[in-house]
Design a protein around this nucleic acid. Sequence first.
DNA 1: CTTGGCACAGTAGCATGCTACTTGTCAACA
DNA 2: TGTTGACAAGTAGCATGCTACTGTGCCAAG
Lengths: 241, 241
Amino acid sequence: MPTFEDRLTITDQLVSTLRDAILRGKLEPGKLYSVYKIADEFGVSRTPVREAMLRLADAGMVRFERNRGFRVLRTSARELQEVFQLRLLLEVPAAARAAMRANEALIAEVESELDAMAAAASARDEAEFMSRDRVLHELILAASDNKKLVESVRSLRFVTMTLGASTVDRSRSLADILVEHRPIVVAIAAHDSASAAAAMRYHIIHTGTLLLNQLVDEGRDSGYLDPDWVDAFPTYHGHAH
Amino acid sequence: MPTFEDRLTITDQLVSTLRDAILRGKLEPGKLYSVYKIADEFGVSRTPVREAMLRLADAGMVRFERNRGFRVLRTSARELQEVFQLRLLLEVPAAARAAMRANEALIAEVESELDAMAAAASARDEAEFMSRDRVLHELILAASDNKKLVESVRSLRFVTMTLGASTVDRSRSLADILVEHRPIVVAIAAHDSASAAAAMRYHIIHTGTLLLNQLVDEGRDSGYLDPDWVDAFPTYHGHAH
DNA sequence: CTTGGCACAGTAGCATGCTACTTGTCAACA
DNA sequence: TGTTGACAAGTAGCATGCTACTGTGCCAAG
C-alpha cells in the first residue's frame, strides 16, 4: 500500500513563499505588516499566515509586535559576523570530513554542481548561481552524515541571504566566488581533507568579508564590529596558506 | 515612561510548560496526544496549545500527524551522536575563546557556578545539578560573544535532555561529571585556552559516551552507531591528553 | 476463523469570531 | 501655537466553528 507523502499544508507553502518574499526584498526590512493583509493577498485565512510567520519569527527573520503587526528584521553586521563565525566552526570540519568520506557518487555530484555554477556565472544568472552555490554547500555538509549539521547551517544561511537583494555590481564577485569553490571540490575529489578544510575556510572568510564590507559601505549598521572576527575562535584550519 | 516588558503570551508560557513536561517524561515518547485534550487540561483554547506544539515540532521534539494527533519523539542514538558531534565543534572552540576573553567577572561567575554544582552533587539533587550544569555551559558560551552560538547549543541540548528522566543510578555519574568541569573552570581562570579546549572536549566526549551507552543498555535503538563518532570531524583539540 | 466494508469517534488544519490594546487623527481648548 | 483628549482604525492573541480525513471496532458474509 503506497502511503502517499503527506501533501503540504498551506502553512508549509506559506513559509517558503513568505521567506522568499523577505529574501527577495518583496517584504521590506524595517516595515510593519499585518497578518490580515497578507492573508487577503494570498486568498487564505489568517491562521496559516500567522503560523508561517511564527516559524519565521522563530528563525529570527521577523518579530511580532503586540497589536501592531510584525516587522521584517534587518540583518545587522553583528549578526552577519556571528553567522560566519559559526559557519567557520561547522563547515570547515565538514569539508574535511567530506574529503575523507568522498565516494565516486559524491565526487560526481559536487563536480557536476560546480560545472553548473560556472555556467550560471558566465550567464550572469545570479539567482541560479546562488541556488547552485547553496546546493553545493549542502552536498558537502550532507556528506558529513550529520543531519543536524545540515539543518543548522541551512538556517544560518537564511539570515545572510537577506542581503542578496541589494544592488551591487556582482559580476566580479560572482567569478571570484566561483574560483574559490574549485579548490574545495578538487580537494574533496582527491580525498585531501586538509586542503578541503583550508579551501573552505578561505572561501567562507572571503564571502563573509565581502558581505560585511557591503553592509558597511551602505552605511548601515554603525554598530560594533570585531575586525578580528575571523580568528575569534581557534579552529581546525587544514594547512596554512 | 517605563515601558513595561510585554507580558508573556499564553503560547510562550505553554512552550516552556510543555517542553518541561516532555523533558520530565510527563508526556511519554512514542505516544499520541491531541491538542484538544491538552487545551482542556490547561483550561485554554486550542490555538495557543497548537502554536506552542508547532514550536516544539520545529525543535524536533514532537511531530504532528495529520488528523491523528502529535507524537512525542524518542531521541534516537543517532540523534544523540549528531548532537554531541556538533557540541564538540561548537563548545570546544567556545571554551578556548572564553579562556582568552575571561575577565574577573566571568571567572567569578563560573567559579561560583562550579561551587553550586558541587553542593548540588553532594546533596544528590540531580535537578539542581543539571540546571547548574546548563548555566555553566551557557556562561562559557556567552563569553564567546556570539549569541547565535549560544542559541544553537541551547536548542541542541534540549534534544539530549529528554533522556534525563530515565531511571539509572546517577550518583556516580554526577560526581564524575562534576570532576570534569573543574579543569575547564581552572583553565578559563588561568587564561589557558588550550587546556580549556582539551578539558571541554574530554567532558563532552565523556558525557556523550555515557548517554549513548545508557541508550544502548536500555535496548533502545538498535540502529547504526558510528563507534568513531568522536573523531568523525577534525577539530581544534587544545593539547593532547 | 478470516475477510471486508461500514459506521463511528477523534483529530489536524483551516476559517472565522471576538476583544483588549496600540497608534494616529483631529477638534476643542489653553 | 501648543496641549489634551475623545474617537476611529487597525492589530495580535485567543476562542471557537467547521470539514476532510484517519484509524478502530463491529458485524455480516464467506
